[in-house]
């Protein structure tokens, strides 16, 4: 899409594209530990329903996802799998780090086998604190992300680098 890359899109079109993108996010729930249950409650339970925000869970594969939400403790053994699955998600992709373990290592900050935060492996857009964060907290994180997407400059995101499929 040469128009997008070279920044020649008019403002109204950009904001239209951003609005349509932010309300049609497909979230890949990378549930690792306890936070995965709260994420499941947020995504699948009728009470904290996330679909009303335009976010659908359960893509068929990472290649169809827009947003990945890492929830739970990241161990050193798991890191290669995380990196590989993150690489499989096509751009533009966003990352939410949910829970204190994914943010910074959390209660296991001194453990010999825990990675101190998923941001050591992938770039993170939104951090949701808590142990575990309430489902409403995750929803707030998603709303924050949607605001970020709404203000995004698409030309910044695609600076003309070739899309590499890994």
């Amino acid at each position: 899409m040469g128009l997008v890359e070279s920044g020649k899109l008019p403002k109204p079109l950009t904001s239209l594209l951003n609005t349509s993108r932010k309300y049609s996010i497909w979230i890949f729930q990378w549930g690792l530990a306890c936070c995965a249950i709260e994420m499941g409650a947020a995504l699948g339970a009728p009470r904290y329903d996330v679909m009303r925000l335009g976010v659908i869970p359960l893509p068929a594969s990472p290649r169809q996802a827009d947003l990945v939400c890492f929830s739970g403790t990241v161990t050193d053994k798991m890191v290669p799998a995380i990196r590989r699955l993150y690489d499989q998600i096509p751009d533009p992709k966003y990352v939410i780090s949910m829970g204190s373990c994914a943010n910074c290592g959390g209660p296991y900050w001194d453990s010999y086998s825990v990675t101190k935060g998923v941001d050591q492996v992938v770039p993170v857009d939104v951090y949701v604190p808590g142990c575990p964060p309430r489902p409403e907290a995750l929803l707030e994180g998603i709303v924050l992300l949607q605001e970020m997407i709404g203000k995004e400059d698409m030309a910044e995101r695609w600076k003309g680098e070739p899309l590499v499929v890994r």
Binding site: G105, W109, D110, S111, Y112, K116
Partner: peptide, 9 residues
């Protein structure tokens, strides 16, 4: 083992 240190600390 006790002599294995937790380096983060």
């Amino acid at each position: 083992r006790k002599d294995f240190p937790l380096l983060a600390r």
